[in-house]
Design a protein around this nucleic acid. Structure first.
Lengths: 340, 340
DNA sequence: AGAGTCTTCCAAAGCGCTTTGGCTTTCCTG
DNA sequence: CAGGAAAGCCAAAGCGCTTTGGAAGACTCT
């Protein structure tokens, strides 16, 4: 059932039917009702390919997925996706993932916008002076950055959490508990979130005249194994920290294992706070010692990103609005006063 | 730069240019070279919307993503996606995720094939008599099932791992080590993979005249917390098992924690084998006691699914070919002889 | 009553590609 | 050299929608 047939059976022109369906004003309300009705009754659905060719709108939002044998997709992605999908579903939006060589995403971005394959894109895991956001902004397609870049000479729309504030609060608490030597087990420090977190820790320490030792901050891919290794290295050194801030729950698993392997305890010998993106399958309160966390639901972020993208597509949102969500500091058993 | 312009500047018809580009035979090789050359030089890329409208082919593969506030996307998905994306990239395929109400995916399937939005779809986490595979097969779009259904009155193409064999081997090993009371901590037993695994365990036990006690098999969402709870329940009972087979590494985390909480040890008091889908961020060899696993890379499966879908799209693969991958049993420190 | 203004609808021109059907031209074959 | 086949190219008709530029009729106003 296509427009032509529908129009014919209503004894109307395609023009009128199309306009009736798309809510244009120049059609009699009575006629519109008739059209709407017939459309519903016959299950008419405009062919998206045709509509896209005519309008250039696709009803999809795009994401360039960095791939490659050596590239691991962040497990957080799936939670983010849950939220995004949840919103997208209720608005009949689809998400298209365009796999790209991790080292050459530009080609893919150019392709998907040149081809008008998607109405909007979002960018995740941005870095300072991220070339993708510069690119996309010149390409002139609605977009949203999940996270923040830095050092760009223009403003851009984003949704981020207050990573600096979160880790500032975490570190401040640890300092107040008497800790003098903190360590930070961070994610890839080429990404802005990691930079912000480190900044937060440093600021908190500085406020008490402390510093984050060169060897007390490490930046690694967020795996259990790396959490373990980093912790071993930290705790086996002569100036071992008495408290650790950690950028992910998965790494925290490794931290806990390392601490145990060394015959130490949490929080007796070392306090631990980790960032929790809120996974359904791994909860900080269920760690052997309930884990203190900085908590922010990445799933909700996904929903919000979808919502704002939809708003931008329909022109309801414009300009370079930045949105920063506060992060909860949830204190559980894994922190205590510094050991004597 | 569109076809018309290109044709005009080559002083050829659109027909010929189109044919030259798409490798049709009825065009002079010399002409084809000229066309190809000009196309490359001017960076001509056919507009996919137009092509799609004309051919009905979209160059995308689809996946219906069950969503909802209560629905959690499986974290395995992201690894599968890595593989799929890796292959898709090298073949210029995009992946479109169509979010759907988890309880009504049919509508969405119908929509994406009626709209010709995708050239093929894959179905994951199939259940016995899965209505989705019946639906998709009648809809007449190329598809592939990742996993297997059961009790369908027709054949279908799939890629699965030998879940039954894997858990059969795992259980057989445990039995050989003297264990008489095994337990299985399984995933959702409405899904075929879980059924197969249970079947494998039962078959191994039966071969030695043993059975899997009613209370020794549990079927839960695969979270750390559920692994923990199940293990506590199992081990605190009077007929506590001396060996546990577990359907996921994430649940195994909970198993390990529960065992430890109870003051027991692995493998002294209880042996443990878990299934490992191979995550980059959580490795069985790094468990406090290195974990024995049945191992199969879900990432490779993703690649293969993409490969076969591409083959089916281009007509290179046909019919209901099933493909079952063997699963490695990797023995590490978490298994030992049954306690006296 | 005539001019101007809405209102409501329509025919037809795209959007950029593929593909059908046909038209020349060249090349054999007997 | 006539007749037929094959090669190489083209014009034009879709694919199914949106949108432009009217046009016809109804209504208001002077």
């Amino acid at each position: 059932m296509n427009l032509k047939q529908l129009a014919h059976m209503l004894a109307l022109s395609q023009t009128t039917v199309s306009r009736a369906l798309n809510g244009y004003p120049e059609v009699n309300e009575e006629t519109r009702r008739r059209v709407m009705d017939a459309a519903k009754r016959h299950g008419y659905r405009p062919n998206p390919s045709a509509r896209r060719l005519a309008t250039g709108k696709s009803g999809m939002i795009g994401y360039v997925l960095p791939t490659g044998a050596a590239v691991d997709i962040d497990p957080h992605f799936v939670e983010f996706l849950s939220g995004l999908g949840d919103y997208a579903r209720s608005h009949e939006l689809d998400l298209v993932l365009s796999p790209a060589d991790a080292d050459d995403q530009e080609t893919t971005y150019r392709r998907i916008v040149a081809n008008r394959q998607v109405d909007a894109v979002y960018i995740s895991s941005p870095r300072p002076q991220d070339s993708r956001v510069a690119l996309v902004s010149t390409l002139g397609i609605p977009y949203l950055v999940h996270g923040r870049s830095e050092g760009l000479d223009f403003d851009y729309p984003y949704l981020d959490i207050d990573n600096e504030g979160a880790f500032h609060e975490a570190a401040r608490l640890l300092v107040q508990l008497g800790h003098r030597r903190l360590a930070l087990i961070n994610g890839d420090d080429r990404e802005t979130f990691a930079i912000h977190r480190e900044r937060g820790v440093r600021r908190a320490l500085a406020a008490s005249g402390l510093t984050l030792g060169e060897r007390h901050v490490c930046s690694v891919a967020m795996t259990e194994e790396n959490g373990y290794r980093a912790t071993r290295r930290l705790l086996e050194a002569s100036d071992a920290p008495t408290a650790i801030a950690c950028s992910s729950l998965i790494m925290a698993l490794g931290v806990v294992r390392a601490v145990r392997d060394l015959g130490l305890t949490i929080p007796g010998d070392v306090s631990l706070i980790a960032h929790d993106d809120v996974f359904p399958w791994l909860k900080p309160e269920n760690f052997s010692v309930p884990l203190s966390t900085t908590r922010s639901s990445i799933r909700l972020a996904g929903e919000r990103v979808a919502e704002r993208l939809a708003a931008r597509i329909s022109g309801l949102e414009e300009g370079a609005r930045g949105e920063v969500w506060p992060v909860d500091l949830v204190v559980r058993g894994s922190v205590a006063g510094a050991p004597a």
